[in-house]
Structures are given as structure tokens and as C-alpha cells.
Amino acid sequence: MSTVLEKFKKYRKPGYYDKFDYHWTMSIDLDRCTGCEACVVACQAENNLPIVGEQQFAMRREMKWIRIERYWEGEYPNIKLQFIPMLCQQCDQAPCEIACPVFATYHNQDGLNTQVYNRCIGTRTCAVYCPYEVRFFNWFTYEWDEPLEQQLNPDVTVREKGVMEKCTFCIQRIRQAKDAAKDDGRRRVRDGEVTPACVQSCPTEAMVFGDLNDPDSRVSKMARNPRGYHVLEELNTTPSIVYLKRVHTDG
């Protein structure tokens, strides 16, 4: 029991999370986001997300690893519309990780907040703890009608009933990039070699993905932008996603 406690203390020690091989980070420039939802569609196709259907949608069982949140500001006629793409923030101090009774969600060496489907027993505690509401539960084993099952991504598991799932930062693409790096005899992945599906599909290039450990990477430069902020920063979850605040020039 005491060893478990010691391990847990070490795990929660500040600085434990600083020693990553990589620190995958995404920056989202809200000034550029047009709310077109191309990222949502790309994510759906890449990560084998099911279409839950009208009835389940009404019961708020929709599965979208990334969604576009709309915020209306002001009164008519001075209405401003604000879009915020919301996906798993890959928090360094993730509330979901301490909640899981079976350690199905944990922090790996790449600074990713990962979810192991095989270990998940579906208590849904993590979804309750998540302040960003980006964890989704498989209420059923969903089926893909013909010929939609032909477009399932073989690099991603088709999740079954009773497991929690969430954005993985397209870990299959990260794995592939590392594989390619090994083939070239490099130890590390170069900047720009990994692009998650949402980043790849963004027509305005509002999203940038990369390694924060590398000070010269594009995302590091974006993260140093004075417009940068984290969503719900006051909760001390230290998210890995940096949003760049939208600047309204019309007063």
C-alpha cells in the first residue's frame, strides 16, 4: 500500500510532467477560425467515429472528438460571433487521470493524455471530471452501414460498447512519423512531420501542431505569442492546447 502511495506522490509531484520525450502541443488561432467544421469531419473520418443517429443525438450522446463551440457576444445589431474549436486539451495535470479507477487513462512519455480502450471498464468518472467535456462514452456498439465500413481507418480501433474515448492527437500519425524517423536513423521526429487530421484539413491553417520541447518549432513560436491563453486556466490543468485570442478591430 505504501509503495503505491509513494508512486502516486511521485506521479503528482510538480515537475514530473516536464520530462517528456516530446511535448505535443497544438495552437489554435481563433482569429483565423471561420467555424467551417472541416476539422470535425476530418476527425470523424480519421478516427472511426460513429454516427450515433438522431435519437441518440437528442440524448446528448453525440461523438465528436473535436467540436466547434459558438459564442454570441453583444446585442443586436452589434452581434459578434466567436468560434472555439474544442477538443481534448491533453492536460498535463489532467483531472480525468486521477479519477480513473483502473488507470485506463494516463499520461505517456510524449505528454499525451491517453486512453486505453482495452483497460477501460466504463465508469464514466473521467467524463464527469473533465472540465472541457471532451470525453465520449460508447453507449452502444455502433455499426457502419455499407459502404461506410470501407472507409474505416485500419490504424485506429473500432471502439465497442462500454468504453470511453477521446481525442488522441492522432496518435497513429505520431507513431507513423516516429516509425519513419527510425527508418531514417533519426532519433527524433522533425517539426511538421506530424499533422493530426484536424490540423491537416484546416483551410485557414488556424491550427498548428508540433513539439513544445523544441524551441524552434512552429508551435513553440505560436505559444509565445502574447495573444495566447489556455481555456479554463484557473483550474490549473495546464492544457497542451494554446488558443490565440481573437482580436476585434472594429471596437
Binding site: 494516463y106 505517456n108 486505453v116 480502450y117 482495452n118 490504424d155 496518435i171 507513431r175
Partner: peptide
């Protein structure tokens, strides 16, 4: 290297 990380083998 990282051979015991879940996501090395699970997907």
C-alpha cells in the same frame, strides 16, 4: 525504448 507504454502496441 518506451516498450511498455500502452500506446506503443495498442491502437
Amino acid at each position: 525504448v518506451n516498450g511498455r507504454d500502452c500506446w506503443t502496441c495498442h491502437k
